[in-house]
Design a binder for these strands. Structure first.
Lengths: 132, 132
DNA sequence: TCAATTGCGTTATGCTATAACGTGTGCGAT
DNA sequence: ATCGCACACGTTATAGCATAACGCAATTGA
């Protein structure tokens, strides 16, 4: 599951996300890549699909946006559940992992015999700078 | 913040959600209420906005759907963070609360001086019946 | 009475995501 | 080598989710 070499489109999309200072929507990515020949949403979504699969990009469900993983090089899938704090003012995203939270949620799913595939934890609010 | 008497539209939307055996999208709700005079998405979204505010309905961010709160009568907002397990096969949703998880996430936000407004925890996977 | 608030209805629009079709390329098996 | 397959890609069209902007009616309270 670690990332193979990226295709041209995947590399372009990933590059845009890495250089951005916050999460981007698929359509924003599309606009940023029009000069590189992108014309249709599907070109973005197909690249994102792979990047998500490789674990180098995360999807923020609560704001329909995508962000580059904060752990370049590592395989993020191996860190357990990923959690995000999203500032609703400046758009900055902080990514973190908490094994105790993972553990509690896993306990719950085990107790219910629920087979978890993908877990989303997103905290929306104001970052330190914006709350001041 | 506890729920005042619902208006006609709010009551209709809430009724549909309560009687449903799983989460519904806004447009599905709209279709179910056409016989009651609903014509436009906004009628649904406006009712949902209030129902969410009152805490009697939850939004499932990861599937763009809405579900009635599992604790009729109580004010769900007072239970801390709400977590959901969503079966991707049968659509059933289980709602639960885990104060230890709340505590860990609050510790993190405190440490970062992040002012949390709304936290989403959604586990997607297969319920016991569907995983068999 | 008047102004403010709230809910409601309608039309239009914008944003997010995928279906369905076809093309080209690389690569292993026969 | 060439056939078949998998995969990435491009394009058009469409589906699905959400809100903007306008105006009207009822309620309330100064």
């Amino acid at each position: 599951m670690s990332a193979p070499a990226l295709t041209k489109n995947q590399a372009l999309v990933f590059d845009v996300l890495e250089k951005a200072d916050g999460p981007l929507s698929a359509y924003t990515i599309l606009d940023k890549l029009r000069d590189h020949g992108f014309r249709a949403p599907l070109q973005v979504y197909r690249a994102l699909e792979k990047l998500l699969e490789y674990g180098v990009v995360h999807r923020l469900e609560s704001i329909n946006s995508f962000v580059a993983c904060a752990h370049p090089g590592e395989n993020c899938h191996s860190h357990g559940i990923v959690a995000f704090a999203i500032c609703e003012s400046c758009g900055q995203v902080m990514e973190f992992h908490d094994h105790e939270v993972d553990h509690r949620l896993m306990d719950w799913t085990k107790g219910k015999k629920f087979k978890a595939e993908k877990t989303t934890i997103e905290i929306r609010g104001l970052c330190e700078a914006c709350a001041a």
